[in-house]
């Protein structure tokens, strides 16, 4: 058991949680407008996946990208500035919440179009194969992407061309009511069995509890090593219980600001979302695992939380004080100049 590795995954998970709470707060304060998507409830998958990736790897995310970026190591202050569309944002303020990306950490472009990023990740695998860089492409996407044809085409191509890609489908429909039944789920597949599609193409496929950080870490580390060795694509379905705040068109902080003490103080858990706190919230789940296995004590957990809470507080101040981009900036980078 690698204690430092597990604590680092936990640190990223709570960092994502505090980041998303800040985003929610900014939206409530009307510091940015329009639709947005939070990664709360899926932190275990993003943080554990990034733990096995290196500088040569490329990751492509979706409209629900914040957690992936933070887990990969983007500075939260630049990510928050981007959400406020400020000049110091990762994309200079022109991308916003849907398109946070940072080429310097191997996340070059974030498409908000459903399924849009899946073939881009296969493109990263294509480039890695061609350049023999040793890197792999990783596509982080939701189950709703299987409603778009381009996802099937990409899986087929990744198999045919033997591309070193890991497709991580974060299926967050479990626990949600299908849209056709009046809910606001992610996908509308008649059966929730998205994994059968890559299986039919003969791709190596795995299923994992996406709310269990250690399980995702063990599986993904093994898959990443194998993809690097064989060059063959792998598909992982990470099944994630849907965060109750995600039952609505806009996120709603129905479960409140996370209290890490809930991990050990069962007496503080009650009410409508008791089941979520006790069995599903991945941050609390992982904190409990770390405590039970002796990797961390209460003080370690609280210490990490205090540290990341300070980081996010400073990031919020930075983002809010960052200037708006100048109007002249709109003309920049329509076309690339000479290299």
């Amino acid at each position: 058991m690698d204690k430092a590795r597990l604590l680092d995954i936990f640190r990223h998970m709570i960092l994502i949680r505090r980041f998303e709470e800040a985003v929610y707060d900014f939206h409530e304060q009307k510091l940015f407008g329009g639709h947005y998507h939070l990664y709360i409830g899926q932190e275990a998958t993003g943080a554990a996946v990034m733990a096995s990736l290196g500088a040569e790897d490329r990751i492509f995310s979706t409209h629900r990208n914040h957690g992936h970026l933070i887990a990969r190591g983007v500075d939260p202050k630049n990510a928050l500035a981007e959400i406020l569309n400020r000049a110091d944002g990762t994309n200079g303020g022109r991308g916003g919440t849907f398109h946070i990306a940072d080429a310097s950490v191997g996340m070059p472009h974030t498409s908000a179009l459903v399924g849009g990023s899946v073939p881009l990740a296969a493109g990263a695998g294509f480039a890695a194969k061609l350049k023999k860089s040793g890197g792999i492409g990783v596509s982080m996407f939701g189950d709703g992407c299987f409603e778009e044809g381009v996802v099937f085409e990409t899986l087929n191509l990744a198999r045919m061309w033997e591309l070193p890609v890991i497709f991580v489908c974060e299926n967050n429909t479990p626990g949600a009511v299908l849209k056709s039944a009046g809910g606001n789920n992610t996908s509308n597949l008649p059966e929730g069995r998205v994994i059968q599609i890559p299986e039919a193409l003969g791709m190596e496929c795995h299923k994992v509890d996406g709310g269990d950080a250690e399980a995702v870490d063990v599986l993904f580390a093994d898959c990443a090593a194998r993809v690097r060795a064989t060059g063959q694509p792998i598909f992982i379905e990470a099944l994630t219980e849907r965060w109750p705040g995600n039952y609505f068109s806009f996120p709603s902080m129905v479960t409140g600001v996370t209290q890490v003490s809930m991990a050990w103080d069962g007496g503080s858990i009650s009410g409508e979302h008791q089941e979520w706190f006790l069995n599903h919230d991945p941050v609390l789940r992982f904190a409990r695992q770390l405590l039970v296995s002796g990797v961390a004590n209460f003080g370690d957990i609280v210490g990490i939380d205090v540290e990341v809470t300070e980081t996010i507080k400073a990031a919020k101040e930075f983002a809010q004080s960052s200037p708006l981009p100048g109007t002249d900036s709109v003309y920049a980078h329509v076309l690339a100049g000479e290299g």
């Binding site: 994309n91 303020g93 991308g95 981009p325 709109v330």
Partner: peptide, 16 residues
């Protein structure tokens, strides 16, 4: 609209 993409920033969106 100016011959550029539409930036997320609302002030810039107005500008284009």
């Amino acid at each position: 609209r100016l011959p550029v993409h539409v930036p997320a920033n609302v002030a810039l969106e107005d500008f284009v």
